[in-house]
Design a protein around this nucleic acid. Structure first.
Lengths: 343, 343
DNA sequence: CTGTTAGCGCATTCAG
DNA sequence: CTGAATGCGCTAACAG
């Protein structure tokens, strides 16, 4: 029996006679024998499975195109590292004390935390319980916590600098909601780039402070706000906090008969699967989905191997992908006037 | 120890003194004790987990907006039934003999099969090995196999009949590819509806027989083919085999300056998350994602409970959702002429 | 009503 | 190099 175990696991350092090895193989095949992952996990105290935890909100994150890309990246990395994946959703963290134990029953060796709110409540609980965890695309300040994120501030700056370099001076931003951290970061980058160029965000920075339930509708209203400005004050470019908002902006612009990019440049963020499918194809900041997944899985495996270890933080850069939705502003008289006024 | 087990599992028929019950609860709490799902699974031979199997193609199904909806439906149902979910991808069925065992190691009680090709190879292997399985959104003829699908033929018929009822006579279909079954079904429904109205699909039914790798690009070419027809032969409506193709059609139409729906009606299929976000919002056939998930999970649990049972097949209807992308055809002279020619 | 016993299927000692 | 014994953490059957 022990011999069989060694053969089937290719146990290193185990010396088995080739003949025996063969005999085991044949027998196993004939019987259709499959080692039980469960029994093995029971004694190894490890099951090579990572859990992906999503909250279940009114708007399911599963439905977001950004999530699709991220999940794809994570799964690819997980497979490469020989890890299985479970998807957790529907657990409300409101009663963290009750939900938490569910994540300590040995089904998974560790967890990736996505789309979380109330991190103050979740993260310490997980950390105190010594559950290996990696936070993805969110920020939480605790030295014990491993995290991987994209540099949203730099991304926001890059987007804005690009528009400035194209010659835009009145640059709007539609940040959607500050519900999640990323929008705050991207907006900060936008502020930085404007400030460095001596430009002002007022009254061009619009969004909603409270919720992301009606993102699509709200984004439309926010874009509308900017379009309603008097022609000589209207922005000539729009930086949108993500590609969904950008898609909505393109829609509203089309409805209003504003040509993109001739009359209005649009830049998104994420490069999700819809970006290339817009009309015109979207200039946007690309999330490195594969690298994000790889980094997240690697960090998590580190945490699993060394449960006490200090959590590393990884910050990945985004990359500007220029497509057709942004170009220099129209050189109209007002525009020129405005430009000299501002600079 | 047995008492603890009974308390923690609320074992039915077990009579425990309230005082003892309380004592156990308190102790468990104090120790932060969590029963091991693994050990329990070892003896119960069941782990309350279902696996979702996707192939990993060159185009990851994870990136499809249709999958997002379906996954959401499945997960919702799984949670309601107290099931955990695992996501399997990256296993190539080409060597089914080697991959198959991976699905028999007890990690999951059963599987949902999505986006599969080469069903002839996979399904019998799974069935012979007595692995509980439900096929989703595909057709395979074996009485042992449980399956849930949407009635694609009826859906295709409904879409086409709707366009006919609006007054269209030259109705194109862009089916994309016959790579998957669904396109074949939807096309069949389209044929049926046309035939019933005495109309012909020639030369309006376009698509690609072989691959879905470059769906987006190919769909564009196919739409282009129809637009290149002489004006008096050009279709006045397009039925697209899914919303992605419809989105592409809208894009091409916009590029060509063809107004939707005034000059060209467009109907999609799926009602995925992008349908409402198109310009104009897409008239389409809605997949009942929640019901699909519920049916799939229910059938799978049936199979798990009764491993030998004959597999039930469930066929769910789609529902026409009328939005703004379809309307009656323009009453031009040629159109009227053409109409009388055809009917 | 509670505690004791056995064994789920494996990997890891340790003798042979 | 191979096989027998042990125990992972739990639940089911049973005896008290």
């Amino acid at each position: 029996m022990a011999t069989v175990s060694k053969v089937l696991n290719d146990a290193s350092g185990a010396q088995i006679a080739p003949a025996t090895r063969e005999r085991v193989r044949v027998a196993a095949d004939a019987l259709g024998y499959r080692p039980s992952a469960i029994a093995r996990a029971l004694i190894r105290k490890q099951i090579d499975t990572i859990g992906i935890i999503l909250p279940q909100g009114n708007v399911s994150p599963l439905r977001s195109t950004f999530f699709a890309g991220l999940l794809d990246g994570i799964l690819q990395a997980a497979v490469q590292h020989g890890q299985h994946t479970m998807l957790f959703t529907g657990h409300v963290w409101m009663d963290a004390e009750r939900s938490l134990p569910a994540y300590r029953d040995g089904r998974c060796d560790g967890f990736l935390l996505l789309y979380q709110r109330d991190l103050d409540r979740i993260v310490p609980a997980l950390l105190d319980a010594n559950v290996p965890v990696v936070l993805l695309n969110e920020t939480y300040d605790d030295p014990r916590l491993a995290a991987v994120d994209v540099d949203n501030v730099a991304g926001g700056r890059t987007a804005t600098e690009y528009l400035i370099a194209l010659g835009h001076r009145r640059i709007g931003m539609v940040y959607g909601t500050l519900f999640f951290d990323f929008a705050r970061g991207r907006r900060e980058g936008y502020f930085q780039a404007l400030a460095a160029a001596g430009l002002t965000p007022d009254p061009y920075c619009v969004g909603d402070r409270y919720t992301n339930e009606a993102l699509w509708q709200n984004a439309g209203e926010h874009v509308g706000l900017l379009l309603d400005l008097p022609p000589n004050q209207r922005p000539t470019a729009l930086f949108c906090a993500n590609d969904e908002i950008a898609a909505r902006a393109l829609q509203v612009l089309a409805e209003r008969g504003v040509r993109v990019p001739e009359e209005m440049s649009v830049v998104g963020f994420n490069d999700d699967l819809t970006a290339t499918r817009q009309t015109p194809p979207l200039t946007t900041l690309q999330q490195p989905f594969e690298e994000l997944g790889e980094a997240a899985v690697s960090l998590l495996l580190e945490q699993i191997r060394e449960p006490g270890a200090r959590g590393r933080k990884i910050l990945l850069p985004t990359r500007l992908v220029t497509r057709a939705s942004a170009c220099p502003p129209p050189p109209t008289a007002e525009n020129i006037t405005q430009r000299s006024q501002l600079s």
